[in-house]
Computed example of a mutant assay.
Amino acid sequence: MQLPQIRLESQMAKIQIQKTPPQQRIQQPEAEMSIQQPKADLSITTKPSKLTIDQTEAWEDLNLMHISKRIEKFADEGHKAAMEGTARRARQGAELMKIENAGNPIANQAITNAFDQMKRIGIKFIPSHFAVKTNYEPSEVQIDVKVNEPIIHVQPQKPVHTYATGDVSVSMRQYQDLQIGFVNLFSDSV
């Protein structure tokens, strides 16, 4: 005997997804930049050095002096000789006033006054040490510098940003299906 049957055939629905990825692009242009460096302002002032040489004393030692100096020298020597002569005469006069004391002042004074003193032998035309006077004033240098700051101009650039959105599309790949069938519903035997 055959039993009636219900046959079910089903098919699941299937979807499909297609995806397009997004695209992003970022570019950073370089900044526009200019730098200028002005030269520093420099000024230099110099006071020249000075050398003075005074050889007046050396010329005087060589007996080559100015006439006013020579007159002054001779006047001093004359005054000194006059003072020494006065002192000698006063001393010798005092000795003669005391002639009664021991000694022979007249003979001694005659010998002393009769002869000139011995002259010193030597070279007199060589200048004395350090007769030439020198004086040196070094030069002075003054340097003034004014520093100028650099001139910097910068213009930044904005980044270039492009973005293309992605896409997702969903569609049916396969629809659901249900098949119902009946078998042996009506039998031939009665």
Rank of each mutant, 00 (worst) to 15 (best):
184 N>T: 01
139 S>K: 07
177 D>M: 11
146 K>W: 03
46 T>S: 10
160 V>P: 00
65 M>P: 00
22 P>K: 08
124 K>P: 06
96 L>H: 03
145 V>T: 13
100 E>D: 14
121 I>L: 04
133 K>F: 07
73 K>H: 07
100 E>L: 07
23 Q>L: 08
53 I>M: 12
32 E>Q: 15
36 Q>N: 14
130 F>Q: 13
188 D>G: 12
53 I>F: 02
167 D>N: 12
27 Q>D: 15
22 P>N: 10
132 V>C: 01
128 S>P: 08
141 V>T: 14
131 A>Q: 03
58 A>R: 02
52 T>Q: 11
122 G>Y: 03
22 P>V: 01
168 V>C: 03
43 S>T: 13
91 R>N: 12
135 N>H: 15
21 P>V: 00
138 P>S: 06
39 K>S: 13
40 A>E: 11
78 G>H: 04
107 A>R: 12
164 A>Y: 06
13 A>C: 07
161 H>F: 14
119 K>Y: 01
53 I>V: 15
102 A>Q: 05
67 I>T: 06
78 G>W: 08
144 D>K: 14
51 L>I: 12
47 K>H: 03
72 E>G: 02
1 M>P: 04
17 I>R: 13
181 G>N: 09
152 I>S: 00
6 I>A: 02
81 A>Q: 05
7 R>E: 15
157 Q>K: 10
23 Q>E: 10
174 Q>G: 06
56 T>P: 02
4 P>D: 12
72 E>W: 06
63 N>L: 01
107 A>P: 04
16 Q>G: 05
186 F>S: 05
30 E>S: 15
81 A>V: 02
71 I>R: 03
